[in-house]
Amino acid sequence: MAPSNPIGDVKSADLELVGRIKSGDGAAFEALYRQHATRLYNLASRMMGGYGEADDLLQDIFLLAYRKIGSFRGESSLGTWLYRLAMNHCLDVLRNRQTRMGQQTDSLDEPDAMPVASPVPVLGAVSRIDLERAIETLPAACRAAFLLHDVEGFGHQEVGAMLGISEGTSKSQVHKARMRIRSYLAHGSKKKES
């Protein structure tokens, strides 16, 4: 019996789906949408810091994907290609927004948040509402890495491919995000106590 090859199966499935979309198969494009829409919607809404723009962004992302599907060569998975396109679009929108508001775009070498020194854990159970608020305060680059890795469950190699950064940079961005969130939550807790 031939050994199972999940990698080959996935690549073949991706190329087959793209081929069908390129040949005008509407069901294939719907399949792409059904597979990724919820996850991309979650990413887009958390990248933008709310639901308001997420519906429009989702539409833009899939329209872009439809227009650019011909450029997919199967060098990465279709998912990685799509999330890279989506994250680039979200980051572009954020940059434009920041430019309009006269803010500077964050860079990858921004200094880490001040560490919280404590001999005991300061957080306990992390509430979802507090965590959502903390995520909104993150700089865009580390927010993107954190959302892809910790919320959506992609590996660092995949996150790197999606954001156009190295695996090591993905790790450092996720770490930076976690430290900033801890700092935000710890200070928030102290404010509540006082």
Partner: peptide, 19 residues
């Protein structure tokens, strides 16, 4: 304490609501 907090954050992030 730091590691425990970071693990709590990671676990909570994974359990965030699906929109």
């Amino acid at each position: 304490a730091l590691v425990e907090d970071l693990r709590s954050i990671r676990a909570a992030a994974f359990m965030l609501d699906r929109r």
